[in-house]
Amino acid sequence: MNKNDIFAIIAKHAQEVVPSLESHVFAQDDALRDLGANSIDRAEITMMTLETLALRIPLTELAGAQNMGELAALIHSRMAASVV
């Protein structure tokens, strides 16, 4: 699982939570807030992503991500850290 795979999962869940993004072409520097996701939407998208990956990371640890690319990178780095 690489960062791009994680990015694609975030994008898929973003489209579920914000249906108007159905035909949106996502970019690494896309900010979910700017794409119409409010704070609860963003928490949902992140949690759905973590559930898909079966990864327990407190949402507060991911709050610093400024855009989808950074979120994917943060999650990827936590995944790598959890593999012994």
Binding site: E44, M47, L50, E51, R56
Partner: peptide
């Protein structure tokens, strides 16, 4: 078995 993944929106 996995309460961590409970959707945040449940809260409202």
């Amino acid at each position: 078995g996995q309460p961590f993944f409970l959707k945040p929106s449940y809260g409202h």
